[in-house]
Write a protein that binds this DNA or RNA. Sequence first.
DNA 1: GATAATTTGTGCGTATGTATG
DNA 2: CCATACATACGCACAAATTAT
Lengths: 259, 259
Amino acid sequence: MKPDSAEGFGQILNDLEPLPRVAGVPLWRQVETALTQAIRSGKALPGTQLPTEFTLAAHFAVNRHTIRRALAELEAASLIRVERGRGTFVHENVIDYQVSRRTRFSENIRRQNREPSGAILESGERPAPPAVARALGLADGEPTIWMRHLSHADGRPVSLADHYFPQRRFEGFLDIYRQRCSITATHAYFGIFDYTRKSTRITARMPTVEEAELLKQPKNRPVLITEAVNIDAEGQPIEYGATAFNGEIVQLVVSSEDD
Amino acid sequence: MKPDSAEGFGQILNDLEPLPRVAGVPLWRQVETALTQAIRSGKALPGTQLPTEFTLAAHFAVNRHTIRRALAELEAASLIRVERGRGTFVHENVIDYQVSRRTRFSENIRRQNREPSGAILESGERPAPPAVARALGLADGEPTIWMRHLSHADGRPVSLADHYFPQRRFEGFLDIYRQRCSITATHAYFGIFDYTRKSTRITARMPTVEEAELLKQPKNRPVLITEAVNIDAEGQPIEYGATAFNGEIVQLVVSSEDD
DNA sequence: GATAATTTGTGCGTATGTATG
DNA sequence: CCATACATACGCACAAATTAT
């Protein structure tokens, strides 16, 4: 894509035109406030790519270093996001994903005034991998129901999750799920009307190629991994989930107010 | 580094030398047990790089596939960690770092039967950066006490933390801290005998060069970032902390059992 | 898969203005 | 007035990451 054709910002550049050049205040700060206002005005939607440093420098008639100084400030204020080799982008509003005893994806997203959606990518029956077996209290290789699920908020991919359920307890789980399209609702079918999270283990690593593509995030930015075990009211483990969160837009929040 | 010169493992290889070659038991399993004993004996410290598959194959006089079969077993048992394009390493015991309402570094490390230690790298007075001011309920640029702290477990760097305290409330904080060498103990001096964590925000990103060096972790593995606000019994914010955890050995654990 | 073009990151040299002593 | 130190601004060149051809 040609740098000048960054959608949404071309017009904004025209609004700013020559830069007043107030004496006494550093040039880079003048550039900074000009760009800040352009972004804060809301005309450039989150995610929009800014013109290149070179283009901005030419437009404001200043050196590229001056532009860089201004951009550094904007990045520190997390108004923009700079990606080497790709460009500079208006920062997306991050999602605060609440990790608590009662963690539900849809509730979590709606709490942020966003619209949750999702789809199953794959599913089937699988012998339990060692980590899963240990978490669910099963013997190694015992059959489990497996589901790979991609979740969105406002159409943006947010997380890629692998869910495992002990098959012995949930015969026909997938058929019910396909009707109800909700893990919570499917659990209800099996007589489980409430479940809570026993513990969550959080790590970070680089995404696989598949994860980066599905989550539509850069390959050189880490994903946040949560491994969680859900238990029913009797304390029996009913689900093991390993979720990769888009590291670009998700922050996990552990708050002390219980819910 | 040449593969043969992986420290700590050269001697171990010599101890094993020709491999007995017991008939009737699979070759790969013989290799597996040989390597397992070498690691379990403790002569190869966690983190040590193993010789390459090629070198191991030559040494045991078996095919590389045989080595790979053995290594696959070791990895499944999480005795080693295999990194594509880098090598194979003796697995570090990971640290489960508990994130809860009462999060204290020393307690956390001792719970894992490890010895905590640490040192202040830098400290001083600083005007509050915007994020800090917002978290502590201060005006932008109000003076704060700042401390950069590197923490270890069994001598291994675990986390690099920036602590901010409102100066107005903690006049002379650093002097007291230098005597007591503990944040908790220093708070006690100021009449705060208990404090809890209001919330923790968890993200992941690639480490800076400085962080990677201080934490002694690879530059291409992410660090886990926690941002936390501690409050006193009255709910007043008394500390803002931003901590970078060594992504190689730390897992954050959010458990639902309160403490 | 290899190569080129694009874009950000880094370093160095130079010049100018401003505050300090 | 001069010397020094520091921040600002510009120009050039190359490194590193990404994307397009």
